[in-house]
Design a protein around this nucleic acid. Structure first.
Lengths: 242, 242
DNA sequence: TCCACCGGTATATCGCTCGCATATCGGTTG
DNA sequence: CAACCGATATGCGAGCGATATACCGGTGGA
């Protein structure tokens, strides 16, 4: 019945090699991004870094001028951001950067606690040579104790988390976590310059990476869950006292 | 510094009442969907139900004719589906319905096992009156034993899962699970008419719903995780023997 | 006289349609 | 066998009509 539609996918003869193209795409430096992708990444960066503060209106015309990008890619990016809960679009009213509050923080954390834990568990069990090397390197940086600035620590935290996502070897999980991570990252920016738990975070990271390198899935999972929970507590502390 | 951008959000005077509008939006029957939403839902339905089989090309012009919808909404829908891993778009080559294989099944299940479990746990702990009533009703239907057809069971399974997502009262989690559920649902369609585990599923559902109604989060979580794992095993069994 | 309500107009934004430029593939030809 | 060329599908941009909100002047009542 629907057989007529059953046309072949891209290059059936090399069907087993379709995935590498995706990896190549991911590995592509930064050049071959479409304007839509470009707009998405740049606007996301602005929102996460609070350059576009929560609750503010998103002026499409202004973005178009700022980024020198046409209307279609901008709209495309905004729709994507809406699906990721970074903006909210009200028909014929405007598009707004989503607000942040304690409730959202809790909702985000609820999911991250289990999902990041899951990723850490998988990463520990599936750790490949390349990921092992990268994580060892990150561990060295941590133990060197050079990272004291909060912004640097944030960068490092990003690298650690994203590395673990990849090491878990589950692209769906990776994508999902990436989305939640950006939501969390914005919260971190929000409480930046509030002198919160630097040492604890470093220690948690160290223990986490060691567990992953040791292949101890259960311990890695616990570490990660604790790390995320602790993160929430710190953010919450700053958030409520304001 | 960025204060210039800090324009007010929509109707700051009624800032506390922004959420209800979202609920109203969700509660809106089916009428006020934009064409983009319409296209998304209809194409998704076609893909999940295998009317557009895995690996087939997605002909934009044909969809436009079939659905009597313009090009922009179709593109919009396809981009959204691409982000949800139901189609894959290759620049200047075409758009294809994503293939399914054992690996994907495993990746999907990995996430669902923890996430669905998490949702069940939260649902059990946060069960409100309305959700309690709805779930009791679902339990009655299950225990009546009238549902024997596999397609009916599938419908019922959908209702149960979606109800639990909502009962968990975490919109982010709900959205994420909805995406994964559609991926799983397509796999179920794939092995339909293969006479697989009807009774077990019903029993699992019954136990799950009882746990949720009893407010036993831990048990609900275990039930759900087992349910999802069992689901994978059954699908896998059929998938490998072909 | 002043205030509250109300209807009409103005504006801004959005969703959608349409057309052009571009890049890739497959077949054909020298 | 290599290179060219048409076919195809996408990326992007501009414009049109629709719609919801905001503004404003008028009117009725206290």
């Amino acid at each position: 019945m629907a057989s007529e539609i059953t046309i072949e996918g891209p290059r059936r003869t090399a069907h087993a090699e379709r995935i590498p193209s995706r990896l190549a795409l991911l590995a592509a430096p930064e050049a071959a991004r479409s304007q839509g992708e470009e707009a998405y990444l740049r606007i996301r960066e602005r929102i996460v870094s609070l350059e576009m503060p929560p609750g503010s209106v998103v002026n499409e015309a202004r973005l178009r001028a700022d980024l020198s990008i046409g209307r279609t890619p901008i709209r495309e990016a905004l729709q994507r951001l809406a699906h990721e809960n970074l903006v909210r679009s009200v028909p014929h009213r405007g598009t707004f950067v989503t607000d942040v509050n304690i409730t959202d923080l809790a909702r985000i954390t609820e999911v991250r606690v289990v999902l990041e834990g899951c990723a850490a568990h998988l990463a520990a069990e599936r750790l490949g040579a390349a990921d092992r090397a990268a994580i060892s390197e990150l561990l060295d940086v941590l133990q060197a104790g050079r990272v004291t600035d909060q912004r640097d620590l944030m960068k490092l935290d990003q690298e650690i988390h994203r590395r673990i996502y990849r090491a878990a070897r589950n692209s769906l999980l990776e994508g999902t976590l990436e989305r939640y991570f950006n939501l969390s990252l914005r919260l971190w920016y929000l409480v930046l310059d509030h002198e919160v738990r630097l040492l604890e975070a470093v220690e948690e990271h160290t223990e986490l990476l060691r567990a992953v390198l040791a292949g101890d899935g259960a311990r890695a999972e616990r570490c990660m869950s604790n790390h995320v929970s602790g993160f929430e507590l710190e953010i919450r502390k700053v958030l409520v006292e304001r």
